[in-house]
Simulated scan of single mutants.
Amino acid sequence: MGIIKVENIRVFAYHGCLKEETKIGSDYRVDLEVKADLQTSAATDALSDTVDYVFLNRVVREEMLRPTHLLETVGKRILDRIMSESGKVQYAIVWVSKLNPPIGGDVERVTIQMQKSRK
């Protein structure tokens, strides 16, 4: 088993419960970690034997572009797609952060973390 991380994926998106958030948008950061068997790909040196991080980045970007009220919703969608579209991923964790959230204070970011395992 091994770990692949795709860190600090920066996206501009339109998530939030406030009407203004869905109109003006915000900056987001997404971090992703997946666990998979990396021994085969280490031996074969073949992209088809691993979890392609280009695929992981694409899933994050596509799901972040679909507006939601809650970060939890977009986090779940990211995990669901990764698990359904890559049979090699056994476990995944996603962190979705809204940078400079409009919550009435000097807050750098708010972050949710969600995880999913293959059954």
Rank of each mutant, 00 (worst) to 15 (best):
C17W: 08
E85I: 05
D27Q: 08
C17E: 04
A46R: 14
S26H: 14
L18H: 03
F12K: 11
V89N: 03
R77W: 04
T68C: 15
C17T: 11
D37S: 13
V11E: 11
D37W: 09
I9M: 13
V96T: 04
L70D: 04
K19C: 00
F12Y: 15
E33T: 14
D45Y: 06
V11C: 04
A43M: 11
Y28M: 07
D80L: 08
R66Y: 04
H69M: 09
Q39D: 15
E72L: 10
D27P: 00
C17F: 09
L47N: 04
S26M: 02
W95Q: 08
V94K: 02
S97V: 00
Y14H: 12
F55D: 11
V110R: 01
P102S: 07
M83I: 12
L56Y: 04
V34C: 10
A42Y: 10
D45K: 12
I93G: 00
K119M: 05
T68Q: 15
Q113V: 08
L18G: 01
G25C: 10
V89E: 03
D27H: 07
F12T: 08
S117Y: 03
S117H: 06
S84W: 00
I93Y: 01
V107Y: 02
D80Q: 12
K119I: 06
R81V: 09
I78M: 11
D106E: 10
E63P: 07
N8L: 07
L99N: 03
I82E: 02
K116M: 14
V6D: 04
D106Y: 11
Y14C: 02
K19E: 11
E7F: 00
D106P: 01
R58E: 15
G105T: 06
L65V: 00
E108L: 06
W95M: 02
M83Q: 10
K5F: 13
I9L: 14
V34Y: 06
S117A: 13
S97H: 12
E72T: 11
C17M: 11
T22H: 03
T111N: 02
R66V: 15
T73L: 08
L65H: 13
L79P: 05
G2N: 13
M83H: 10
M1I: 05
H15G: 08
D80R: 11
K98Y: 01
T50G: 07
M1P: 07
